[in-house]
């Protein structure tokens, strides 16, 4: 199964280290292959360095793709983490 969704980065600091780590930790809970894309760079959702390379700041529109048995759940979970500002206040 393959799913994808576009999500807007809404926290002020964007994909900084703690945010990337949160994505990696959530991604690792799923069996599916997870990719995160910002413009023309695509990173592995399970790699911190990859996610940091994206340089996705406030206002960036990123695309999450999941491929595998739990793809739908993975997309739902990850997009929620991002729209919840990674639990950050602003």
């Amino acid at each position: 199964m393959q799913f994808k969704k576009k999500v807007l980065i809404v926290n002020e600091a964007g994909f900084h280290i703690r945010a990337a780590l949160l994505i990696v930790k959530e991604s690792e809970k799923f069996k599916s292959d997870i990719k995160v894309r910002n413009k023309d760079i695509e990173a592995d959702g399970k790699s911190i360095m990859g996610l940091l390379t994206l340089g996705a700041g406030l206002g960036a529109e990123i695309e999450i793709k999941a491929d595998g048995p739990d793809a739908k759940e993975a997309i739902a979970r990850l997009s929620k983490v991002i729209s919840d500002r990674f639990g950050e206040e602003k």
């Binding site: 760079i41 911190i48 360095m49 940091l52 390379t53």
Partner: peptide
């Protein structure tokens, strides 16, 4: 080549960045 300011950084599991 690397792609951004993180070019010469690495993540080593157990140690960190």
């Amino acid at each position: 080549r690397g792609m951004s300011i993180i070019q010469h950084h690495m993540e080593i599991r157990g140690v960190g960045i």
